[in-house]
Nucleic acid binder design. Structure first.
Lengths: 185, 185
DNA sequence: CTCGTATGAGACATATGTGTTTCATGACAC
DNA sequence: GTGTCATGAAACACATATGTCTCATACGAG
């Protein structure tokens, strides 16, 4: 009935990610225009703004989960796992970021998925902590938040054209793990 | 004519900082209600949303400048300067943060002041770099962005009640400067 | 007390976003 | 060709935010 043209739906979703990344309060009309579809068509696929936001949130979380699962599967140590996951996350950061600043959390299903995602990260960090990778005196929540924000900084850097995704991810990992203190002194 | 009751204006400004920190798209009616004034009174002090935003931006930038100037005046080394400035900035982060995600930049005067503020930070970082405090291989822009984001993370931590401002600033400085790698291994 | 003035409350017009409905069109299957 | 169906365009009703205006009130200065 309503989703027989997957291309249209995808176009709307992509446009929404792009538009909302720069302006979370952008109108649905802006999204439709960017997607190259009529405003009515957008409503045929997504009844309203909350439904669209929910769809974006689910997609973003699924992408994150897949990317990190694939990245960490190749890792043999905790350090390598976090480093590879960071590299995998940088290109996705723009799609993740709006989750943190949006009222998407209001949706119970999305909120649960988001919480589960953070719990995963938290669990990995605690395991790594027990292994001595991270300082035990630093709260796990702090490590989570720093990791996420430095990922975002890396993405911003890429977006601004100041580095490649690989370079930016390296910078973020280095900052996160060993800090920016000079080595030469 | 329009600003004979400074208390009212201050109440509006404080309410605006509080409201816009959580929801940048909040209505002026919400701000007025939080300030305990009528909506018309808000318009008497600030003709419209852009003027209010501009006033907030100027205040936030002035506060930042004063706080960091005072903090760094007591410092004898670059390291101490950045550490003290960070401590001074954490309690102000909520008032600074909306600057980065707002279209306040559209105002030329505010944009210039913001750019000047960032130039100051950039200059200090380059000087410290030349002194060997920061790794020369890391772009100055990256250091600026990391510094600002970790300041924000620290403020978030305080806001969430997970740490005192001092504890959070210490965590941020430590992460920024030496990273989160475990020491005990 | 009296005047001036900032204020709050409410009415009002306007603009924008939102969601629905209708209708014509174009693509595709048969 | 014919019918089905997703779509685009436009009109529509509705809600909310915004900005202005009017009027009554309360507070302070004189």
């Amino acid at each position: 009935m309503t989703q027989i043209r997957p291309e249209t739906r995808d176009a709307i979703v992509e446009a929404a990610f792009t538009i909302f990344a720069e302006d979370p309060s952008a109108s649905l009309g802006d999204v439709a225009k960017r997607a190259g579809v009529g405003r009515a068509t957008l409503h045929r696929h997504f009844p309203g703004r909350p439904e669209l936001m929910r769809a974006l949130a689910k997609i973003a979380l699924t992408e994150l989960e897949e990317a990190t699962a694939q990245a960490t599967a190749e890792a043999t140590t905790y350090e390598e796992g976090f480093r590879l996951a960071l590299h995998a996350m940088v290109p996705l950061a723009n799609r993740q970021w709006f989750l943190t600043r949006e009222s998407v959390e209001a949706d119970p299903e999305v909120a649960a998925a988001h919480a589960a995602s953070r719990d995963d990260l938290r669990g990995s960090i605690e395991a790594a902590k027990a292994d001595g990778l991270f300082d035990r005196d630093v709260p796990t929540e702090w490590i989570v938040a720093s990791y996420e924000h430095l990922t975002y900084v890396a993405w911003s850097f890429v977006r601004a054209g100041e580095a490649t995704p690989k370079q930016a991810a390296d910078l973020a990992w280095r900052t996160f793990f060993t800090g920016l203190k000079g080595r030469s002194t």
